[in-house]
């Protein structure tokens, strides 16, 4: 649905986006992560045709964003950062205006406007002027605007920014639901959002892609991912430690707490042998008639990955 090839953007001497390439298919929700100033918004503005790229190519559907902007823009619903709105219009007036610009008229327009107001729970404020709305409602009005034409592609710059926890939850659920039949790309700072809504995530830093994969794949990149936390009782601790270290699948053992008949710590397995190592530990302890009080393969945490990747590359 969206193909981005070697995309670059320079603002004078400053390079905002450097040689960015990725692809997004229908049915995918792509989370766009990165520290502030990483080039997320700039990239989204180029995809939506607001900023012309310095180099590279963006295709939406079959339309090239630079060569046939009107065709490309017709396929994209866009929620810009900070949810800009025309303050003098009412919610309905604003949505009608956007609907007409998107080529809807008459009954079709009314139906589309009413549908997007339903999706974003705006029916109660439809006749209210936009500048009297609270931040959450303003945000949802702009969100509704992006959905009016039921576009094949949704591009959203921090869609949950400024919402309360319930609204955030709702927006994520909405994104996940719509993601089944659309191609969605959204940026965020909130990592739990990526796990909650995305089928794939890209981390960019300094205008370049530094990681690209499913949330699970990314989590495995965290330091400590795949390590095994354990607690054993009922067998002598010192012997257990050296025996565990001797297992073929184990590379080392870090002990946190050692008593006479109790050992707690973390096993670092050999590369890619996490499952094997936990099996070996289980078998060893049961062969010695010990009591395995805890055995857990640690998942990486996305914010650890984020911090490690983006800190090293800045």
């Amino acid at each position: 649905m969206i193909t981005v090839e070697n995309l670059s953007k320079h603002f004078g001497p400053k390079v905002a986006v450097k040689n960015l390439s990725f692809e997004l298919k229908k049915g995918e929700v792509l989370g766009f992560l990165g520290p502030n100033g990483a080039g997320k918004s700039t990239t989204m503005r180029m995809i939506t045709g607001y900023l012309p790229p310095t180099a590279g190519k963006i295709t939406v559907g079959k339309a090239d964003v630079v060569d046939s902007p009107v065709e490309a823009k017709a396929k994209i619903g866009y929620l810009p950062e900070n949810a800009p709105l025309y303050s003098e219009l009412t919610v309905q007036g604003f949505l009608n205006f956007i609907g007409e610009l998107r080529g809807l008229s008459g009954a079709d327009r009314d139906k589309a406007v009413s549908r997007s107001m339903d999706l974003c729970h705006l029916q109660g404020v439809r006749h209210q002027s936009v500048d009297t709305l609270s931040k959450g409602f303003r945000h949802r009005t702009c969100f509704a605007q992006a959905l009016i034409s039921d576009p094949e592609v949704l591009v959203m710059d921090e869609p949950t920014d400024g919402l309360d926890p319930n609204q955030k939850h709702e927006v994520r659920a909405l994104i996940r639901r719509m993601g089944e039949e659309k191609a969605i790309i959204f940026s965020t700072h909130i990592l739990e959002e990526v796990e909650a809504a995305c089928s794939r995530a890209i981390i960019i830093s300094g205008g370049e892609v530094v990681a690209n994969g499913t949330p699970d794949q990314l989590k495995k990149k965290a330091k400590g991912a795949g390590q095994i936390r354990f607690q054993v009782a009922g067998i002598p601790a010192s012997a257990t430690k050296s025996d565990l270290e001797g297992l073929a699948s184990v590379s080392s053992v870090d002990v946190n707490l050692e008593e006479e008949n109790m050992l707690r710590g973390v096993v670092v397995p050999k590369e890619g042998q996490s499952a094997r190592a936990s099996e070996d530990i289980f078998k060893y302890v049961s062969s010695k008639n010990g009591l395995l009080q805890e055995l857990a393969v640690l998942e990486g945490r996305l914010d650890d990955v984020f911090r490690e990747i983006t800190e090293t590359s800045v």
């Binding site: 045709g49 009107v70 994209i76 866009y78 810009p80 800009p84 025309y86 610009l101």
Partner: peptide, 14 residues
Amino acid sequence: RLGTMELLMTMPIS
């Protein structure tokens, strides 16, 4: 000032 330029210029119009 309102930032709506970004909205207007990403509509499928010239």
